[in-house]
Design a protein around this nucleic acid. Structure first.
Length: 579
RNA sequence: UGGGGUGUCGCCAAGUGGUAAGGCACAAGGUUUUGAUCCUUGCAUUCGUUGGUUCGAAUCCAGCCACCCCAGCCA
């Protein structure tokens, strides 16, 4: 028995890393707490775009359900219409699908439960556990006390049940203005947990809601709504982040003070032969990434003030931005799995994310060549009309990824960084009188350096060793390999080189007055004279490529045009030389 | 100074009384027509700290220290 318990605790041998949430679910399953059910939910508020931090929660909730044959709902926690919109609802749904997850039947909305929520509020009032308060928000703050001092009861706290019922009905009917009344739970104004000092359950807001329109002028608060929504959806494990830990007593208080049969009766599984069990909240640490800002308020501000180009700017940590940057859904899922789930607040190093995308793209991205900063090279011992079609493997290790045709001509481009007149020690690229391998092609030797009037190198004359295609040259070793593109058949393209948006580890640190002071001035470098091999535009089904020796790039579908393709650099290759 | 949490390698993170997994990063070799990938090796005598219990402690107990969260009619 002890052996069995230990096995259920650690699933690391099975490939899925052990964490305290998986362990807890395994224990709940072992004790048959929910009759074998595992039902989670991802509950975003549609007040912004999803970011990589949300991805951690999405992966956790959906994976943990799937691993146990359970379900995961998508529920919009839309109780604050002032900040929410349909645009965000749509973007969030889209992002979750893109990430590769499928929610249990139709999308849920907390607003879909407004009527039931109202009924439960009436129930609390009838039980003498909630009252209508006329304190203003400001007064309520004063009555609440402080961290070290208990609060004091509102003068309205002992209002009669009848009067509370009447007032609450009139709140709903729209008889009062915003802020004039609120419905509060009657708990304990002296509680050391401030969340228990008669928290507000309903507030008056004469404002339209993106889902319910003008049907309501009172809206329930998060604390009141979330637990009941979980209960209605028969959620077994309600996973949320650490800052809600203090709210758990309230979550439990609300649910335990409602008649369990009435909860069960309006739940999704009503009528099915299951033993109705209340959901339980478990908290985990949210994801933090260095060199990244994750606060929704700040992200929204960057969008609104044009610091970046929008929610899907490839420098944004949003899923929309990362997608446009070229991150694959799988790499994000792998990353989320690799950072683990714990209760210690940690800051994950950017290199972990970079590893995840390189790891995925190395295996999946077809190779191609693109010259970022072109330098003309004339191969003098080839005929002017020389044209040879070379067949290159799309992936050095994966033959199943096929081959492509690359035209080789008398004039080609190589990258300016691959030639040095005065090379530093250890330089393995082209130098005067030196040899280098053209990737997938011949070995060439530089015989002449041509400079323009400004002293800049304008062209290289080289000779081709015609006996080196697919074989090593005889009697010598060629140390370097360089990528190239035909000048006549290459396609001109714009390439955007992205780098981290911030140059400090924690742009949201209190020590920093304004994150704008920490913006990386070279987070985007746009190159407009790049030349890419034509095969990239063949009916390839890939959006992602490795431009050999440069990095991973993807086609920017938003800005590319028929005549001017745009590529975004997802991430550079690892570089142990770093020039 | 109230309450709730967290402290295991530079960064994540397993570990739940039997003698410190793994990944990232880093370093050194090997392979290589990508200075990539891949492979091999190295990388915590020690788990915030001080005591205690125990044959045995990262794991149990007590004190201390550091950091995070909470005083929205935001979520």
């Amino acid at each position: 028995m002890a052996e069995l318990e230990k096995d259920s605790r650690s699933s690391s041998e099975a490939g899925t890393p052990s964490n305290f949430i998986r362990n807890k679910i395994a224990q709940d399953l072992a004790s048959n707490k929910h009759e074998g059910r595992v039902h989670t939910r991802f509950p975003p508020e549609p007040n912004g775009y999803l970011h990589i931090g949300h991805a951690k929660s999405i992966c956790l909730n959906f994976s943990v359900a799937a691993e146990n044959g359970g379900l995961c709902n998508l529920r919009f926690d839309d109780t604050n219409p002032a900040k929410e919109s349909q645009e965000y609802v749509d973007a969030i749904k889209d992002n979750i699908n893109w990430l590769g997850f499928h929610w249990n039947d139709e999308v849920r909305y907390s607003s879909g439960y407004f009527e039931r929520l109202y009924d439960f509020a009436v129930q609390l009032i009838e039980k003498g556990l909630a009252y209508v308060d006329s304190l203003s928000a400001e007064q309520a703050r004063e009555y609440r006390g402080s961290l070290t001092e208990p609060g004091t009861n509102s003068p309205d706290r002992e209002r009669s049940i009848e009067e509370n019922l009447d007032l609450f009905a009139r709140m709903r009917a729209g008889e009062f203005e915003d802020g004039n009344y609120s419905l509060r739970a009657k708990i304990d104004m002296a509680s050391p947990n401030i969340n228990m000092r008669d928290p507000v359950l309903y507030r008056i807001r004469h404002i339209a809601h993106h889902q319910t329109g003008k049907e309501w002028c009172i809206y329930p608060t998060y604390d009141y709504t979330h637990c009941i929504s979980d209960a209605i959806e028969n959620i077994t494990h309600s996973l949320c982040t650490l800052e809600f830990e203090d709210h758990r007593p309230l979550y439990d208080w609300i649910l335990h003070n409602l008649d369990i049969a009435s909860l069960s009766n309006v739940s999704d599984l009503e009528g099915q032969a299951i033993n109705y069990v209340l959901p339980e909240q478990t908290e985990f640490a949210k994801l933090k990434l260095n060199y990244t800002m994750m606060g929704k308020r700040n992200l929204k501000e960057m969008v609104d003030t044009g610091v970046i180009e929008g929610w899907d700017d490839p420098r944004m940590p949003t899923l929309a931005g990362m997608r446009r940057r070229g991150f694959t859904a799988r790499s994000i899922r792998n990353f989320c799995e690799s950072v683990g789930v714990s209760r210690s607040e940690s800051v994950v190093d950017m290199s972990m994310l970079e590893h995840a995308i390189r790891d995925d793209l190395d295996k999946s991205a077809p190779r191609a060549m693109c010259v970022l900063n072109p330098l003309r090279v004339t191969l003098v011992n080839l005929e002017p009309e020389h044209r040879e079609i070379l067949s290159l493997q799309n992936h050095p290790k994966e033959e199943s990824m096929g081959r492509r045709e690359v035209p080789f001509t008398r004039e080609i481009y190589i990258d300016r960084a691959d030639f040095e007149e005065e090379p530093p020690a250890g330089f393995k690229r082209l130098i005067p009188e030196g040899e280098v391998r053209l990737r997938g092609s011949y070995v060439i030797k530089c015989t002449e350096v041509i400079k323009g009037a400004d002293g800049e190198i304008s062209e290289l004359k080289c000779t081709v060793d015609k006996d080196t295609l697919g074989k090593k040259p005889e009697g010598r070793k060629v140390k370097g390999v360089v990528h190239w593109v035909s000048t006549t058949e290459g396609v001109k393209a714009t390439v955007r080189l992205y780098d981290r948006l911030f140059n400090v580890e924690n742009p949201e640190s209190k020590e920093i007055e304004d994150y704008r002071d920490c913006l990386n001035p070279t987070s985007l470098i746009e190159l407009t004279e790049c030349v890419v091999e034509p095969s990239v535009f063949a009916e390839s089904d890939s959006e992602n490529f490795q431009f050999e020796r440069e990095g991973y790039f993807c086609i920017d579908r938003k800005d590319s045009t028929e005549t001017n393709p745009v590529f975004n650099r997802t991430i550079t290759l690892r570089d142990s030389w770093s020039s």
